[in-house]
Amino acid sequence: IINNLKLIREKKKISQSELAALLEVSRQTINGIEKNKYNPSLQLALKIAYYLNTPLEDIFQW
């Protein structure tokens, strides 16, 4: 999986903590996703895309 979450999140000036709060997950979860240590569920990936107002395929590429 190619993961552009960190790049997109930083472009939008959103911290890991802010995104985690919006998604109701821990900051460690966001960190793990960004470091490719954790693959989000489809539901979480869709929520990330929604809150970042970015197409899912721009954030994650399988």
Rank of each mutant, 00 (worst) to 15 (best):
I1M: 14
I1L: 14
I1A: 09
I1P: 10
I1F: 15
I2G: 10
I2P: 09
I2E: 09
I2K: 14
I2T: 13
I2A: 10
I2L: 14
N3D: 01
N3A: 04
N3P: 03
N3Q: 05
N4H: 11
N4Y: 08
N4I: 05
N4R: 12
N4V: 04
N4T: 05
N4D: 04
N4F: 08
L5E: 01
L5G: 00
L5Q: 02
L5W: 00
K6D: 02
K6W: 05
K6R: 14
K6C: 06
K6I: 05
K6Q: 11
L7Y: 13
L7H: 13
I8F: 09
I8P: 01
I8W: 07
I8Y: 10
E10C: 09
E10Y: 05
E10R: 10
E10L: 13
K11N: 11
K11I: 10
K12E: 07
K12T: 07
K12L: 08
K12F: 05
K12Y: 05
K13T: 07
K13F: 09
K13Y: 09
K13D: 09
I14M: 15
I14N: 01
I14Y: 08
S15H: 05
S15K: 09
Q16D: 04
Q16G: 04
Q16H: 04
S17M: 12
S17D: 14
S17I: 12
S17A: 14
S17E: 13
E18Y: 08
E18C: 09
L19C: 04
L19M: 05
L19V: 01
A20L: 02
A20E: 01
A20V: 03
A21F: 10
A21H: 11
A21Q: 10
A21C: 11
L22G: 13
L23V: 15
L23S: 06
L23H: 00
L23I: 11
L23M: 07
L23D: 00
E24K: 15
E24N: 15
E24H: 15
E24P: 06
E24I: 06
V25I: 12
V25N: 01
V25T: 06
V25Y: 02
S26D: 13
S26Q: 06
S26Y: 04
S26H: 07
R27T: 15
R27L: 15
R27P: 15
Q28V: 12
Q28G: 14
Q28M: 11
Q28D: 15
Q28S: 13
Q28Y: 10
T29C: 15
I30V: 12
I30P: 01
I30H: 00
I30L: 13
N31A: 14
N31V: 14
G32A: 15
G32R: 14
G32S: 14
G32W: 14
I33C: 03
I33S: 02
I33N: 00
I33A: 02
I33Q: 00
E34S: 02
E34W: 04
E34K: 02
E34M: 03
E34I: 03
E34P: 01
K35E: 15
K35I: 12
K35C: 12
K35N: 15
K35P: 01
K35S: 14
K35W: 07
N36A: 09
N36F: 11
N36D: 08
N36K: 12
K37F: 14
K37I: 13
K37M: 15
K37W: 15
Y38P: 03
Y38M: 12
Y38H: 11
Y38N: 08
Y38S: 09
N39F: 15
N39T: 15
P40Y: 04
P40Q: 01
P40T: 05
L42E: 06
L42S: 05
L42H: 08
L42G: 05
Q43A: 15
Q43P: 12
Q43E: 12
Q43N: 11
Q43R: 13
L44C: 05
L44G: 00
A45E: 02
A45I: 05
A45S: 06
A45K: 11
A45R: 08
L46I: 12
L46Y: 10
L46G: 05
K47W: 05
K47Q: 10
I48P: 00
I48G: 00
I48T: 03
A49F: 03
A49G: 05
Y50A: 08
Y50F: 14
Y50T: 07
Y51H: 11
Y51V: 15
Y51Q: 07
Y51F: 13
Y51R: 05
L52C: 03
L52N: 00
L52T: 04
L52R: 01
N53Y: 05
N53H: 09
N53T: 07
T54N: 03
P55S: 09
P55K: 09
L56F: 09
L56Y: 06
L56H: 03
L56D: 01
L56E: 02
L56K: 03
L56G: 02
E57D: 12
E57F: 07
E57Q: 11
E57H: 11
D58L: 12
D58E: 14
D58A: 09
D58V: 12
I59W: 02
I59P: 01
I59H: 03
I59K: 00
F60C: 04
F60D: 00
F60I: 03
F60Q: 01
F60G: 00
F60H: 01
F60E: 00
F60W: 10
Q61T: 10
Q61P: 15
Q61H: 12
W62C: 13
W62M: 12
W62Y: 09
W62T: 10
W62S: 08
